[in-house]
Design a protein around this nucleic acid. Structure first.
Lengths: 247, 247
DNA sequence: CGATTTACTTCTGCATGCAAAATGTTATTG
DNA sequence: CAATAACATTTTGCATGCAGAAGTAAATCG
C-alpha cells in the first residue's frame, strides 16, 4: 500500500540527509509513523535531553511539513518524553534518578499484576515458550552477550504481559518502559547485578511454571526494585563520565 | 448548552500569575485548554461514543482553527478517549465491560501501590485531613447526597495519591480514572453497593491511620475490584435502558 | 572594553488553502 | 422500484502563510 519512504507531494522532500539509524517499521498512518519515528529518535538518544527539538530539521528529515510533525510532538509530550515550553517549542525531557525512583515502583506494581494474571491464564505451551526464551537468555548470559541477553530479557517480560491478556495493562507498561529505556543502562551493568538478575529470572520462570501468582508478583516487584537500583547506578556512572546538562 | 469560546489575544495570554487558588484554572496554553476542554466534553458525555467528532463544529465552539484542535484530538486519541479512523476523523471510544475489566485491575494495582507509599510518608496532619474528608463523606452518605458523596470520595482517593508522592503514579492513575469516569456509574449505584463502599472506606481510613501499608494495599485492591463490579452493573443497566449504537 | 540597546533573523503558534477521500444526493438503469 | 452510476458537497490530512515571540548579531553608550 504505502512506501516506507515518506515523500510528500511538493518539491522539497529532501530524503534522508545524514546517516540516520532510520525507522524501518512503516505504521499505518503518517501520524503513527511520525510518533513512532520520533519516539525512536528520543529513545535512541539522537535527540539530546535539554536541547530544543529542531522542528524544521526533523521536517526535512521525515519529509513532511510542520503540521503533522507538531501533532506528533504534542502526543509525545503527553507521554512525558517531551516538555512543551510556551513559545519555546519542545524539549526532550531528561531522566533524573528521581524520575527513575518514581517510574520503577509503578512498573513493579504493573508487572506484579501482570504476573498474577499470567499465572491464572498461562498454558503449558506458553510456559514452554517462556522456558525456551529463558534458557536462551541464560546462554547469552554465560556468553556475556549483553545485547542479545537484553533483547531476550525484554522478550520474556513482554511475553508475560501478553499472556496476562490485559491490553490496558500492556499499554501502560509499555509507556513507562519506553521512557525508562532511554537510560540504556545495559552498558553499565555490573557483573554482580547481572548475576542477580539471572537468578531472579530463574525464580520468575519457576513461579510461572507452578502458576503461583502471588509468589510471581512478589518476585517481579522485587526484580523491578533491583532493576531500579541498577538503572540508577548506571545513570550516576554515566553522568559522572559525561556530565551533560539534563532537563 | 453553553458557548466555550476562548478568545485569544496576543501578549495577554500569559498565565494569571499571582497565585490565586481558583478552583477553575484556565490552562496556561491554548493546547492544554483544548485538550482539557475536549476531554470534559467526552467525559461529560456531550460527544456520543461511536459518532464522528464534529471537527468544524468544535472549532467554532472553541473559537479556534482546525490546527490546534486537531493537535488536541491526537493527544486524546493517544490517551484512548478517541479512536482515529484513517480518512474518517476521530471517533469517541465507548466503554465496554471488557474495557472496565481491563482498567480496574490496573487501577487497583496502582492504588495499592499508592496506599503503601502513602502509609510510609503520611503525617499526622494528613491523617487528620483524610479523616475529616472521610467523615464528611459519611455524612453525605447518610444524607443520601450522592453527588457530594462522590466528590468527597474522589477527593480521598486523590489525596492518597498525592500523599504517596509519586507524580508518575498520579499521572498514570489519572489517565485511567479519566477514562473510567465516563461510565458515570454513580447514578445507578445500588444501596448495597453504596453501603459496601462506605464500609471499605472505613477500613481504608483505619489502615491509613495505623500506617499499615500492606493492609491498605489489600483493601484498596479489593475496593477497586468491587468498584469494578459496580461500574459494570451500572453499564449493563444503562445499556439495557438506552441501547445505543456500540463503539 | 563590558553592558545595554537596537536591528535583524529564526522559530513558534495558529490560521488558511488545497487535493484527495469520504459522504450525500440525484439521475439512470434493468 | 431496488440497485447502481454519476455528480455535488463535505470532511480529512497535510502544506503553506503570517503575526508575534524568542534568539542573535550589530550598534551605541557608559
Amino acid at each position: 500500500m504505502e512506501d516506507a519512504n515518506l515523500n510528500r507531494q511538493p518539491g522539497d522532500a529532501t530524503a534522508a540527509a545524514s546517516g540516520s539509524p532510520a525507522t524501518r517499521i512503516p505504521r499505518a498512518t503518517l501520524h503513527d509513523e511520525l510518533v513512532g519515528g520520533l519516539r525512536d529518535l528520543i529513545v535512541e538518544g539522537e535527540l539530546t535531553p535539554g536541547t530544543r527539538v529542531p522542528e524544521r530539521e526533523l521536517c526535512t528529515r521525515f519529509g513532511v511539513s510542520r503540521t503533522p510533525l507538531r501533532e506528533a510532538l504534542k502526543v509525545l509530550a503527553s507521554e512525558g518524553l517531551l516538555a512543551l515550553l510556551p513559545n519555546r517549542g519542545a524539549q526532550v525531557t531528561g531522566l533524573t534518578t528521581a524520575d527513575i525512583d518514581e517510574m520503577f515502583p509503578v512498573m513493579g506494581a504493573l508487572e506484579a499484576l501482570a504476573g498474577e494474571l499470567a499465572c491464572a491464564r498461562i498454558t503449558d505451551e506458553e510456559i514452554a515458550e517462556i522456558r525456551a526464551l529463558h534458557y536462551n537468555m541464560v546462554l547469552q548470559y554465560t556468553r556475556r552477550e549483553l545485547p542479545e541477553y537484553f533483547r531476550l530479557n525484554q522478550s520474556i517480560h513482554k511475553r508475560i504481559l501478553e499472556i496476562a491478556g490485559n491490553a490496558t495493562l500492556t499499554r501502560m507498561y509499555a509507556g513507562l518502559a519506553g521512557r525508562a529505556r532511554r537510560a540504556r543502562y545495559v552498558a553499565n551493568m555490573t557483573k554482580a547485578r547481572w548475576d542477580q538478575a539471572v537468578e531472579e529470572h530463574e525464580a520468575i520462570l519457576d513461579a510461572l511454571a507452578q502458576r503461583d501468582g502471588p509468589r510471581l508478583a512478589r518476585i517481579l516487584k522485587m526484580h523491578l526494585q533491583n532493576k531500579c537500583e541498577t538503572v540508577k547506578e548506571s545513570l550516576l556512572a554515566e553522568s559522572a563520565t559525561a556530565p551533560k546538562t539534563d532537563r
